[in-house]
Design a protein around this nucleic acid. Structure first.
Lengths: 182, 182
DNA sequence: GCTGAAGACTTAGAAGCTAAAGTTCGAAGG
DNA sequence: CCTTCGAACTTTAGCTTCTAAGTCTTCAGC
């Protein structure tokens, strides 16, 4: 199924061998793919996390920034809408916004046309942080894929989206929010 | 950089287009790979999470079970050792073990040869749960890779381990414990 | 003007984690 | 023999982030 912690981890091959000892009905080839995928993803997240931490933003902040930026100019969304996009309850969203307002990443104001609604808007500082994080990330990503030829990249992208399609169609998706399980 | 929530997510292509609008220096091919990888991993974790939840064990329980099983028979480790493998503080480990003892997944006893030490041992019920989870997982994984020919599988495994090697060598790994960032 | 529904916020509480202090035991030195 | 030090685990206090349930405000229809 993959890996878990990332700290004192054994080499991939070793761990797969251990899995086989403990669970005979295991296809090593399948397990290699799944474990590598999971481990790779975890390592990337560690790298991203370090980069964003250097910029002074948390993972939860990052999610909100991303949702706002992806909504397009003028980068405004209501708390309820944000909550839906991030898979949170409105209450959790309120707290996140509180924090981010004090951090200067977003502003919160009432909608003057409908005073029940609230509008969360990205500040220029928030946008700048997002851009800076993206710059760091794209450097990291380019470096990660450095050894892959253009053909390799095309093939990999194609295979991964094929797998993704399979998962997304098979899964109704209950909005779960789960850490590494492997 | 990938995805975040999993709930009301737009199609991959659409999201990459949005990224390009907001951040010009983005290689769509790179982004496609990274986003698919991240999203795929998240969906898989949702699936695993559902399966283990059906068995009545939490994600945190699962991590501990895995560490014990992978340590090999007789499936015994000290709390401190477990904490290192999982990247937790000893205090956090104490709490996890408390819970798992009441759930009947492990036992905790003092080492009679050195009464400072504690030994955590997998119960047969704990081992059975792990096995059952692995059975479910391997079915899911085989299904996921169904459309890939043996050659495709070999190639994918090879490419992923190549990427993994690159990340692992570049990164000292600060033991971070980070959720999806993309 | 009242009433109901919608949207956001508040409160209370759960799950996990960390850091730091406390406990218990083994070992080494006087 | 006894004392002291250190190792290993637990306890305590507090943080973060989440959910559920109740409250407040405002709009819209009657």
């Amino acid at each position: 199924m993959g890996d878990t912690s990332g700290a004192g981890e054994p080499p991939l091959e070793e761990q797969i061998a251990a899995y086989q000892r403990e669970f005979q009905d295991l296809d090593p080839q399948v397990e290699k793919i799944v474990s590598a995928l999971s481990r790779l993803n975890r390592r990337m997240n560690v790298a991203y996390g370090r980069q964003t931490a250097d910029l002074g933003i948390s993972n939860t902040d990052w999610e909100v920034l991303k949702a706002l930026v992806l909504s397009g100019a003028p980068y405004r969304l209501g708390p309820g809408d944000l909550a839906k996009r991030l898979g949170l309850t409105p209450a959790a969203m309120t707290h996140r916004i509180d924090r981010m307002v004090t951090e200067g990443l977003v502003t919160r104001e009432r909608d003057e046309t409908n005073r029940v609604r609230v509008i969360v808007e990205l500040t220029s500082e928030g946008r700048e942080k997002w851009l800076e994080a993206m710059r760091l990330a794209s450097v990291f990503e380019e470096d990660l894929l450095q050894d892959l030829s253009p053909d390799d990249r095309t093939a990999l992208g194609e295979v991964l989206t094929r797998l993704l399609r399979r998962v997304e169609h098979a899964q109704p998706d209950a909005g779960g929010r789960l850490s590494d399980l492997d």
